[in-house]
């Protein structure tokens, strides 16, 4: 890891660039899987719910069919698994109370993405919301992060 990546983006005790990039990765992958899920779920989730009911063999079969025929659900689930690993690594470096606000960036990314790629109209109110989210994320990521050498708040029980 190069030094510049590990240096805090604002002073020695702030979020490192490395950690910030990991979090932005999580946001990107999460937004993608959300969009995939959203488009896939119309048919698939119904089968998931039915299959959770006991003694519903036909629904379980239906679920199997849906899962096999719905690649978007597979891809989204796979992305969520990959995301877990990146997220876990990021959380080792960052306070939860910084990481979760930064993750909320996806609520701003999705409308902007829809505006750029899908030519969707965005209302003034939504633009204001997007701006507030960006500002909030920026403020949170500039606040003092727990220094890495800080002893864990809860030592491992065993």
């Amino acid at each position: 890891m190069s030094n510049s990546l590990n240096r805090g983006i604002r002073g020695p005790h702030s979020l490192s660039l490395h950690a910030l990039l990991l979090l932005l990765c999580v946001v990107a992958v999460d937004s993608t899987s959300q969009l995939l899920l959203k488009s896939a779920v119309e048919r698939a989730s119904h089968a998931v719910v039915l299959a959770m009911l006991p003694e519903n063999d036909s629904a379980a079969t239906a679920l199997a069919n849906e899962m096999l025929t719905e690649p978007r659900l597979w891809i989204a689930t796979g992305l969520l698994c990959v995301n877990f690993l990146i997220w876990a690594r990021a959380l080792m470096l960052v306070d939860l109370s910084i990481a979760v606000p930064v993750i909320n960036l996806s609520y701003a990314i999705v409308p902007v993405g829809a505006w750029i790629f899908l030519r969707e109209e965005i209302s003034i109110q939504r633009w204001v919301g997007v701006a507030l989210i960006f500002t909030g994320v920026m403020i949170c990521s500039l606040t003092r992060n727990r220094p890495p050498e800080h002893p864990p708040a809860h030592p491992l029980p065993k």
Binding site: S97, P101, N104, Y107, A108, Q125, R126, V128, G129, V130, A131, L132, I133, F134, T135, G136, V137, M138, I139, C140, T143
Partner: peptide, 11 residues
């Protein structure tokens, strides 16, 4: 910052 984000998400 978190309060701004919350407001933004609601908007």
């Amino acid at each position: 910052g978190a309060a701004l984000i919350c407001t933004g998400v609601v908007l």
